[in-house]
Amino acid sequence: MRWKATMCGLGLVLLAATACGEQGGGVQPGSGGAPSSSEAAPTAPTIPATELPPVMPGGPRQMQPPADTTPVPASRVDSAALPSDFPREVFVSADGRQLFIRAEEGGCGRAAAEVAEQNAQQVVVDLVESRSNLAGQMCTMDIRYPVVSATLSDPLGERTVVLKSVKRGY
Rank of each mutant, 00 (worst) to 15 (best):
P54I: 14
P54D: 07
V55N: 07
P57K: 01
P57M: 06
G58L: 14
P60G: 13
R61A: 15
R61Q: 15
Q62I: 13
Q62K: 14
Q64S: 15
P65C: 09
P66L: 14
A67H: 04
D68A: 13
T69Q: 06
P73N: 08
P73V: 05
S75H: 00
R76N: 11
V77R: 02
V77G: 03
D78H: 11
D78S: 10
S79W: 04
A80W: 00
A81K: 08
L82Q: 03
L82T: 04
L82S: 03
P83G: 05
P83C: 07
P83H: 08
S84Q: 12
S84D: 13
D85L: 10
D85T: 14
F86S: 11
P87C: 11
E89L: 11
V90P: 04
F91M: 14
F91V: 07
V92F: 13
V92M: 13
A94C: 08
G96M: 12
R97V: 06
Q98C: 01
Q98W: 11
F100E: 09
F100I: 01
I101Y: 04
R102I: 12
A103P: 05
A103K: 08
G107P: 01
A111L: 00
A111C: 00
A113F: 09
V115R: 05
E117V: 08
E117L: 12
Q118I: 06
Q118G: 03
N119A: 02
Q122H: 05
Q122M: 05
Q122T: 04
V123R: 01
V123E: 04
V123G: 02
V124L: 10
V124Y: 00
V125T: 02
D126T: 03
L127R: 00
